[in-house]
Design a protein around this nucleic acid. Structure first.
Length: 110
DNA sequence: GCGCTTATCGCAC
DNA sequence: GTGCGATAAGCGC
């Protein structure tokens, strides 16, 4: 407990992302009704539901890996890629090799 | 085409 | 009340 409505919204939206799919901070921010993807990153960094919230499924709008657990680069990022690849998401040159796997919240409403 | 700066929202201290 | 954060977009060179 202690999580705000905004954070709860971010976690819920993130859980909507199926395995083998990734979403971007911008899409996530838009899904929660926020115009600042950085606010989403804040919630993910402070995410009290680490195993429940697949924060590693969130990447930058540039399809780059972005950050993970409070690090924009490092061993954590490498692990993040490994986790995504384990789910069927492949990364090349530090970027999503298949933008088609970019989950779209609008697609969920479609 | 690449790089840097500015803008923006929320959370934590 | 202030600072920081896992970004995004725009403008300049």
């Amino acid at each position: 407990m202690g999580d705000t409505e905004f954070q709860k919204r971010v976690y819920e939206a993130l859980m909507l992302v199926p395995r083998g799919y990734v979403t971007t901070y911008k899409a996530l921010a838009a899904a929660v009704g926020c115009g600042s993807p950085r606010a989403v990153g804040q919630a993910l960094k402070r995410n009290p539901y680490a195993p429940e919230v697949p924060c590693h499924r969130v990447i930058a709008s540039d399809l780059s890996i972005g950050g993970f657990q409070g690090a924009s680069a490092g061993a954590r990022i490498s692990k993040k890629q490994a986790m995504l690849e384990a789910e069927g998401v492949h990364f090349v040159d530090g970027r999503l090799s298949t933008p088609d796997q970019c989950f779209r919240f609008s697609d969920a409403s479609r």
